[in-house]
Amino acid sequence: MSHKSALRPRYLKLHAVLVFAFLFLPIGVLVFFSFNNARSGTDFTGFSTKWYSDLIHNHQALQAFRNTLKVAIAATVIATVIGTLASFALTRFKFRGRSAYSTLIFVSLVMPEVVMGVSLLAFYANIAHMKLGLTTVILAHTTFCIAFVVVVVNARLASFDNRLVEAAADLGATPIQTFLRVVLPLAAPGIAAGAMLAFTISLDDVVITFFTSGPGSTTLPLYIFSSLKFGVSPSINALSTFVLVFSLFLLALGGLFSARSAKRGVTAVDVNALG
């Protein structure tokens, strides 16, 4: 039947290839220049791997990279849990104050970064009396990540069929079983997508991180931003290339993840059939 499809796979595939090319074009540039002989991002003077060996001695960059990972992982996990729970409540229950919630979520999306950074710093320093460090950065990142998770999971759960839950209950499932075996598998792609978004925006943030970080909690974007004056150093390109290769390696392992989520899909369909 697919030959009749409104969106032909052949054209779609071509489009997909082009979009992927667009997405990876700047990545290609940075990988290319990570092997540049000179400390220049514009003229390729010769092949060299010296930036990779330099990287091992660039403690500041490596420390910043470790901080970035700590912050992004912590913020993603917390925001995904909090955001997913909130999304279940928002999509499944009618209650007063729901629109106030939506408002807050959009406020956190629209609040200019500088404003969020300054106001969070004022809160930490003058109200909460917290010492600036990784914790304050993680709290800040989680705050703006939650909204992204909620919006994406909501999109997945919109027009959620409550009959599935009722059916599960009729079959004697406890609420927790229902949640784990019916609701969660249905929402899983949305949750995964939300978590990925949260992870990437946490990984990228400069402005809010600047205001909320203290001694020793410089993240990689902050480190790069402050060294941008003289252009991105090839050793940062080398580090990015390393991260890229590492994530591609993880992606290869991701086949495993695919298989597991396919299984979960089957669970959902089973319950569906029962309903």
Partner: peptide, 23 residues
Amino acid sequence: VTYDNYSSNDELFAKMRTGGSGF
């Protein structure tokens, strides 16, 4: 020594006067 960087006076000043920094 823990060494961190900033890139403008405006940024530094905005941060210092909003709250303590630990530096």
